[in-house]
Design a binder for these strands. Structure first.
Length: 465
RNA sequence: GCCCCCAUCGUCCAGCGGCCUAGGACGCCUGCCUUUCACGCAGGUAACACGGGUUCAAAUCCCGUUGGGGGUGCCA
């Protein structure tokens, strides 16, 4: 076990898992699987407000959905508080940490008074203050020297100790901050590689200093992943960006596609084959190959990858996966009009057209809806600008009234009109019946519809000319 | 302000000193297929931020500039 790689994904439960966190989890998992190591899940709920079951579920469920299985945990920091407090006590006893009762306002005032730049300047460091109800514990950072991080992705990163202020390690409510929890847990859990977002790079020297002060020996290898950013190149944020993993899941994105897309942000396979089974990604993945620059989470590419995965699904699987969307109460047609048999008949055509399962209803809405709403652009292109439309509609209507109501006959009727008139007859009929100038092939769908309903659509379109 | 990180097509990735007149993918455009759209297929568009070094040779190494980002809490 001594030489086995041990990584951990340690999210703070703050509501839901977003794609950035998922990517961190994924890279940890990939590294563990690639090396035959252990992937540990640890919930960083040191802040009392974060200890809520629903928040825990919001992390665990998306991970399970993605298939990022962990080998140990979840461990909860809220259940390990005593360990962190012991470590803090030890630091105080060793003179490596001390009590301080200054509030933020007082600190700012002191800085102003003494003409110092903003920040904490060890004001209570040598006062020998006792513990008290409003006291925090601060770590005594070295005044000289530097703390060096050996990062697997970024190389050597050096922080001058003089720039590190005496940071708080225990709040006045006696709860430990995550920095201590990180050091204690990573040591206790034998973590060999800490793989996390670059936004945590600046906190690393603090953890490292604590690590040394607690006498833990060899620090883990760090690897700070490039951030996932939005179109404005800002770090993804829950408030401004639509990045909840649960939302993607609800829209029908496939976990395999999401994983595949996430793996391609900050890393790429040598052979340039992008869409591939996770097993191959595991095989090729290595921390040393991860990029340093931030990556834009592009949903267009996600859509493309998802579409590829959708098309690879078996017809049965596709049908099973879209069922929730075509049978949901939110469909754009009255539920009683829906026919599973009809949808199953058309499903293969839908499958080759959707990027995401949730788009399926949009391809068959006109089949089940009582009436159709015309897309103005389609109307303009397929009806207004097309030739001989009144004639086409009249002729097709006449043929539809009497022809055999089955796919081949319907198709033949439409094409015959086109030939007679010397114009393309399909698009006007399509727009008249479906409301749009694009979509799945007409014939099977029309045959599945009630003849009268189709005739009514054609008359409605005539009335709109 | 201070600290830290980053910099190849619009986007993601390849490139780890010569194989680069810079490759792949998404997007966009064109054509083929098709009396719709999509899929598929064949093409096209488009980048080494800038300036100095180092070297016989630099997208690749070093320095600087500029630009972007992250951090700067008794959040994590």
């Amino acid at each position: 076990m001594t030489d086995q790689i041990r990584v951990r994904f340690a999210p703070a439960p703050t509501g839901y898992l977003h794609v950035g966190s998922a990517r961190s989890a994924l890279f940890n998992w990939l590294y563990a699987r690639h090396t035959g190591g252990i992937f540990v899940l640890r919930i960083e709920d040191t802040n009392a407000e974060l200890k809520q079951q629903e928040f825990i579920d919001a992390i665990v469920e998306p991970l399970q959905w993605l298939g990022l299985d962990w080998d140990e945990g979840p461990y909860f920091q809220s259940e390990r508080t005593h360990l962190y407090l012991e470590a803090i006590d030890q630091l105080v006893a060793d003179g490596k940490a001390y009590f301080c009762t200054l509030t933020r306002e007082q600190i700012d005032a002191l800085c102003e008074e003494r003409g110092l730049p903003n920040g904490y300047h060890g004001f209570s460091r040598d006062l020998g203050l006792p513990d008290s109800d409003d006291a925090v514990v601060r770590f005594r950072t070295p005044d000289t020297g530097a703390t060096v991080i050996d990062d697997a992705i970024r190389g050597r990163v050096e922080f001058e100790n003089e720039h590190l202020e005496d940071f708080v390690i225990r709040r006045s409510d006696k709860s430990p901050v995550f920095l201590v929890a990180n050091a204690v847990d990573d040591a206790d859990m034998g973590i060999t590689h800490v793989v996390r977002g670059e936004d945590l790079l600046n906190t690393t020297p603090k953890v490292q200093l604590l690590w040394q002060a607690l006498g833990y020996g060899q620090a883990p290898q760090y690897a700070h992943l490039p951030l996932l950013v939005n179109e404005q190149r800002k770090k993804l944020s829950k408030r401004r960006d639509d990045v909840s993993l649960g939302d993607f899941r609800a829209k029908g994105y496939l976990p395999e596609a999401m994983l595949n897309h996430l793996a391609l942000l900050g890393w790429g396979p040598d052979d340039e084959v992008e869409i591939r089974p996770i097993a191959e990604i595991i095989e090729q993945f290595d921390l040393a190959d991860v990029n340093k620059g931030s990556a834009f989470f592009d949903t267009k590419k996600l859509d493309h990858i998802n579409g590829e995965y959708v098309r690879k699904q078996s017809p049965e699987q596709f049908l099973a996966d879209v069922a929730p969307f075509v049978e949901s109460p939110d469909t754009p047609w009255p539920a009683e009009n829906y026919s599973a048999e009809t949808f199953a008949l058309l499903a293969p055509e839908v499958q080759s057209r959707v990027a995401v399962h949730s788009e399926a209803p949009n391809f068959v809405d006109w089949v089940f809806a009582d009436e159709v709403t015309y897309d103005e652009k389609s109307w303009n292109k397929g009806i207004v600008k097309a030739k001989l439309v009144p004639e086409i509609l009249a002729e097709v209507l006449a043929k539809f009234e009497t022809c055999t109501w089955e796919p081949d006959a319907i198709k033949e009727a439409v094409f015959a009109v086109g030939e007679e008139l010397g114009a393309k007859s399909q698009v006007p009929v399509r727009v008249a019946v479906t409301g749009r100038n694009f979509g799945i092939p007409l014939w099977d769908a029309l045959a599945a519809m009630d003849r009268e309903k189709v005739l009514a659509r054609l008359r409605a379109a005539q009335g709109r000319l």
